[in-house]
Amino acid sequence: MKPKVKNWLIQLNKGIIKTNTTKIIYEIHKHTFRGKGYVTIDELRRDLNMAHQTLTAIVSSIQDEGIIKSIGEIDINDRPFSKLAYAEKSERNHLILKRRKEKLSQWIKRGKEEWLDLMPQSLIDEINKL
Rank of each mutant, 00 (worst) to 15 (best):
K2R: 12
P3L: 10
K4Y: 13
V5M: 11
K6H: 14
I10F: 15
Q11G: 04
N13L: 13
N13Y: 13
G15Y: 10
G15S: 10
G15R: 07
I16Q: 13
I16F: 14
I17A: 08
T19F: 05
T19C: 08
T19K: 04
K23M: 03
I24Y: 00
I25H: 01
E27H: 04
I28P: 00
H29N: 12
K30F: 13
K30V: 05
H31M: 05
T32R: 00
R34A: 02
G35D: 07
G35Q: 01
Y38T: 06
V39D: 00
I41K: 05
I41M: 09
E43D: 14
E43M: 04
L44S: 05
L44M: 10
R45C: 12
R46I: 11
R46L: 08
R46F: 05
M50R: 02
T54S: 15
T56M: 09
T56A: 12
A57V: 07
V59R: 00
I62L: 08
I62V: 14
Q63N: 07
D64T: 03
G66M: 02
G66W: 01
G66N: 03
I68L: 04
I68Y: 04
E73Q: 13
I74L: 02
I74D: 01
D75V: 09
I76W: 11
N77P: 01
D78L: 06
P80F: 13
P80E: 11
P80T: 05
F81D: 03
K83N: 06
K83S: 07
K83M: 11
L84Q: 04
L84K: 02
L84V: 07
A85R: 01
A85K: 01
A87V: 06
E88S: 12
K89D: 14
S90G: 13
E91A: 08
R92P: 04
N93A: 09
H94T: 06
L97Y: 08
L97G: 02
R100G: 01
R100F: 09
R100L: 12
K101I: 08
K101G: 01
L104T: 05
L104G: 03
L104P: 00
L104N: 05
L104K: 03
S105Y: 06
Q106M: 11
I108M: 09
K109R: 11
K112L: 15
E113R: 13
E114S: 09
E114M: 05
M119K: 08
Q121D: 13
L123Y: 15
L123P: 03
L123W: 15
I124Q: 09
E126K: 12
